[in-house]
Amino acid sequence: MRTNTRNKSLLLASSALLALALTGCNSTPPVTSGIGAESLPPKEQLQPYLKVDNADLSDKLAISDVLNRKSQGFLEVNVELSSQYKKSLKLQYQFNWFDAQGFVIEPEKSNWQPVVLHGHQSIKLHGVAPTADAQTFNIYVREIPAKAYKFD
């Protein structure tokens, strides 16, 4: 009888703590890793040029095609992003541009652009290099954190 009461109390205590831990002050920083791709030479396989830092996101989302061309002297890029997830994904993507020597062009001026991808939708992200010097690029895609953004 006595052991039973003790067990009950322990259960109560641990469940209260668990509830507190779940509802309490969640100050963990958001996940800011994602998936990316680099510019690839024509007729190359895409796979070696992909970058996966976030396995959870890469289960839901894939970069399925990377195209580039010169348009009026500027490097123009189309990156196909396809969802393998039934729900909508709220994402942000960023292009970075590099010149022939591999130097970044317009550093720290490349914005993250928001994009909503509906369930199993494919879209083409479009980017144009800021100057005619750009020869290569990379793209990175990550989720928009649902909570207020923190940089802890």
Partner: peptide, 12 residues
């Protein structure tokens, strides 16, 4: 107080 990313998506 902390510095943020000026290029990040803002949804305040």
């Amino acid at each position: 107080v902390q510095y943020g990313d000026a290029q990040a998506v803002e949804t305040t």
